[in-house]
C-alpha cells in the first residue's frame, strides 16, 4: 500500500458519493449516462468475484469491493426508478456492445491464466478502461455539463490517473508489475485527457463546463 493507491481509491470512493449527491441535490440524473453506470456494475461484479474466498485476506479490499458493487447498483436503481424521468435514451446512445465485445476479446486473448476467474478479471480491467466512453459521448452531444457532474467525472478519472504513479512505485520499489492493469490504466487515463483539460481551464476557474 502506498500513498498514490490510497489517494486513488479515496478519489474513486468520493466520485461515487458526488454522483449520489448530484442526484439528491438536483433531484435528477440528467447528464449521467445509465450505460456507463451499467458497464461499471459489470466491471465490479466480474472483478470482485474473489470477495467470496478472499474476505479475510484484506478487510480494506473486501469492504471497498462491497461498497463499489452496492453503491453502483444503488445508483442504477435510483436512475431507473426515482429519477427515471430525466433519463434520455435519445442522447445516451453509445454502442456499448462493441465495448463489451472488445473487452471480451482482449480478455480471452490475454489473460494471465486460463481460468474463469482470471479471464473475467482481465475482462473487467479492459472494460473499465473504456466504460466511461458512453458518458463522455453523452457530454459531447449535450456540449455542457452541470458543475457537480464535472466534479464526479474528475474524481473518477483522477482515481485511475493516481494508480499510474502507484504502479511505477511498485515496479521500482517492490518489483511488482502488472502489464494488463498498467496498459489498460494508461488507456483509461488518456481517454480523460480532453475532459481534464477543459475541467482545468474552465471549471477550476469558476466557469461553466462548455465544449468549445
Amino acid at each position: 500500500m502506498n500513498l498514490f493507491r490510497i489517494l486513488g481509491d479515496l478519489s474513486h470512493l468520493v466520485s461515487i458519493f458526488i454522483l449520489l449527491q448530484k442526484m439528491r441535490s438536483t433531484r435528477s440524473c440528467a447528464g449521467i449516462s445509465l450505460r456507463t453506470q451499467i458497464l461499471y456494475l459489470m466491471v465490479y461484479c466480474t472483478r470482485y468475484l474473489d470477495i467470496f474466498w478472499t474476505f479475510n485476506a484484506s478487510l480494506y479490499n473486501s469492504s471497498m469491493k462491497l461498497v463499489f458493487i452496492l453503491s453502483t447498483a444503488y445508483t442504477i436503481y435510483l436512475m431507473r426508478t426515482v429519477y427515471k424521468t430525466a433519463l434520455d435514451p435519445q442522447i445516451d446512445t453509445f454502442a456499448t456492445y462493441y465495448l463489451v465485445g472488445g473487452a471480451g476479446l482482449l480478455a480471452v486473448l490475454f489473460p494471465y491464466k486460463y481460468t474463469v476467474y482470471e479471464v473475467l478479471w482481465s475482462f473487467s480491467i479492459w472494460l473499465e478502461s473504456v466504460a466511461i466512453l458512453p458518458q463522455l459521448f453523452m457530454l459531447q452531444r449535450t456540449g455542457e455539463a452541470e458543475t457537480i457532474t464535472t466534479h464526479y467525472l474528475f474524481a473518477l478519472g483522477a482515481y485511475r490517473a493516481l494508480y499510474i504513479p502507484n504502479w511505477l512505485y511498485r515496479w521500482f520499489l517492490e518489483g511488482h508489475f502488472d502489464p494488463i492493469a498498467t496498459v489498460a490504466g494508461i488507456i483509461q487515463t488518456l481517454l480523460y485527457s480532453d475532459f481534464f483539460y477543459i475541467y482545468y481551464t474552465k471549471v477550476l476557474k469558476g466557469k461553466k463546463f462548455e465544449l468549445p
Partner: peptide, 10 residues
C-alpha cells in the same frame, strides 16, 4: 507469477 493471488488492487 502466481495468477489469481496477486490481484491485490481494486
Amino acid at each position: 507469477r502466481e495468477a489469481g493471488k496477486t490481484h491485490d488492487e481494486l
